[in-house]
Amino acid sequence: MAAITPDPPRHSVPGFGPRAAFWVTAWRIVKAKPSRLVGLGIIALFTWMGIFGPMLYPANLPIDPNAIYAAPSWHFWLGTDFEGTSNLALVVTGARYVLFAALMAAVFTVVIGTGVGLISGYYMGAADGILMRVTDFFLTIPGFPLLVVLSTVWNFGQPVAMGFVLGITGWGALARAVRSQTLSLRERGFIEAARGMGLPWYHIVFREILPNMGPYIAMNLLVSVTGAIYAEVGLFYLGVVPFHVNNWGVMLNLAVFTGGAMESPQALPYLLSPLAAILILTLGVVLFLDALDEIFNPRLREAS
């Protein structure tokens, strides 16, 4: 593929060095609506939390026996847990596992789903038949129960493992959608022209067809992230996955089953802080989604 993208040695014409311009226009599009900026800000905040969060606090979070299940206060912004540890610190340090696993899940979903869909749609015939049967097989696997079963034999201490399992069960629908779009795109004039020019298949699939699905795939990536967060937090909440590290799901589980947040208002801040984190992140994703279509669709991009 490297041979096909010319490095831009001279920027005499913008058309030959489009990458830099891409980020400039992307930023302009995000800037156009405050809601998109808010969305981007929220996503950036959580990304930052995931990367640097654990560095802000000592490895073992301080406990305060005098402030068990404390209400939110100046000292403890979001209250404390059963040991008197700040909920804010727990949310911030717990973000890494959740977000990294969710990102991995989304990447697996999108890469496998898009790849299978593209190849299946472009080649049709036998390859299509086999790939689609495989897809149907994965579509029929109930993901969540599978995870419950797998967790009994597999250690989910590494977020990559968790992400992999979530991704491997979730790509079927995307593959189907990408395949049907590929099927319609491959009949278009410009694909025929590329074939007539004798361009290699990987150029046609990845350079001609794939960009036309950019908005759709980018949206799927973001939506998969939130979907994966729900799934893994759900697993931890149910307690079917052993707790290795602190994360949002563990917090929910402890708040409900140990702290009795359902019965006593005392533990409520402990329950609500991870929930709020998930809700805010989802809100951020939803607000930002609106910009993606414009960023990846040249027609909308230039119109704005």
Partner: peptide, 27 residues
């Protein structure tokens, strides 16, 4: 080489003219 009837479908909407011309030339 075929010049198609519909110039709207014959060019990839997500690629610039430069990109469309570069592909066969790079090959």
């Amino acid at each position: 080489q075929l010049i198609q009837q519909d110039p709207y479908a014959a060019l990839n909407p997500s690629r610039t003219v430069a990109q469309s011309l570069t592909a066969p030339l790079a090959w």
